[in-house]
Amino acid sequence: MLKIAIYGKGGIGKSTISSNLSAIISKSGKKVLHIGCDPKGDSTRNLMGKKIPTVISILKEKNNLNREDIIYEGFDGIECVETGGPEAGIGCAGRGIITTMEELEDLEVFDEERDVIVYDVLGDVVCGGFAVPMREKYADIIYIVTSSEFMSIFAANNIMKSIKNFSKMKNIKFGGLIHNQRNNDSNINILKIFADMTKSKIIGEIPFSKELIKSELSGKTIAEMYPNSNLYNNFLELSEKILNNQDDIDFSPLSEEEMEYLAAEILKENIYYEEE
């Protein structure tokens, strides 16, 4: 069984990319379990057509959960779970992940036969809860979604530091960076500089597309809404790379000084400012 975790800064598009990857992988004939590990609880919306109850919300009403209480069948038979979290400003968001993993363990869900598990995880790994897929080795390989914006790369670098720490103890692999081109100004050259500096690699790129925006607003994946599009082929290519990826990248996260150097390189690209 292949266990994949997709990490990234909040709002960078990791849920959109992870749900579309789950859909494409399922269409290839694989049995997929998709677990949303984000307090927003919207990772599976594109697979279900709507938001589903989260494990945390269900536990408020029922103590002893059954499998049917928390696992929902979505697009193409994909099994969907949402961890959820506390209301804004109340409690620990990462606790939702910890609680969900405990419930899935109790229900022996991880012992069932399937081909792929996809975890969609918020990149705030400062909180121990968000590091659970790595720390407890629920995932075997980690991918990071990022744009070419500095703060997104900054978050990616922090996630890489966590992967590095846990890889020594848990044999966690880093599969590479996924470039999400969120607008027409996105500059992959900036991300290439970061990849070179960290001795990592960009495994795939998702181009800016109105089709992706429309499908997300419709609560559908590209596989369901635009199966004959170029964007579908982009996701198909990325999914094939992930399914066949045997690399174990020996990467080196950047120091604070190196991140400052990267910031200077971004300025040289003349993307985010204009000379007066």
Score class of each variant (00 low, 15 high):
250 D>R: 15
168 K>S: 09
53 P>R: 11
23 A>F: 09
16 T>D: 15
269 E>L: 15
231 L>P: 07
88 A>Y: 10
132 V>A: 07
2 L>P: 11
238 L>Q: 01
77 G>Q: 11
39 P>S: 10
227 P>H: 11
104 L>C: 15
185 D>K: 14
68 E>G: 11
176 G>R: 07
224 E>N: 04
149 E>V: 11
108 E>S: 11
86 P>K: 06
142 I>H: 04
136 E>Q: 05
251 F>S: 08
17 I>W: 09
47 L>N: 14
53 P>K: 02
183 N>K: 00
181 Q>N: 03
236 L>I: 11
224 E>K: 01
253 P>T: 14
166 F>E: 02
18 S>I: 01
22 S>H: 14
273 Y>L: 10
273 Y>H: 05
229 S>D: 10
43 S>A: 15
236 L>R: 00
8 G>I: 01
164 K>W: 02
9 K>V: 01
261 Y>R: 15
270 N>P: 03
172 I>Q: 06
266 I>H: 02
166 F>L: 09
9 K>A: 04
102 E>I: 08
156 A>N: 04
206 I>E: 06
125 V>S: 12
100 T>S: 10
162 S>Q: 13
198 T>K: 04
207 P>S: 15
56 I>M: 10
67 R>Q: 14
252 S>C: 08
180 N>K: 09
60 K>N: 15
74 G>N: 08
210 K>W: 07
99 T>K: 06
142 I>V: 07
167 S>E: 07
86 P>E: 05
271 I>A: 02
166 F>N: 01
197 M>V: 09
58 I>K: 13
174 F>N: 05
135 R>P: 05
179 H>F: 11
3 K>R: 15
236 L>A: 14
194 F>Q: 03
59 L>K: 09
181 Q>Y: 00
98 I>E: 06
81 V>C: 01
128 G>H: 06
100 T>G: 00
260 E>V: 07
256 E>M: 07
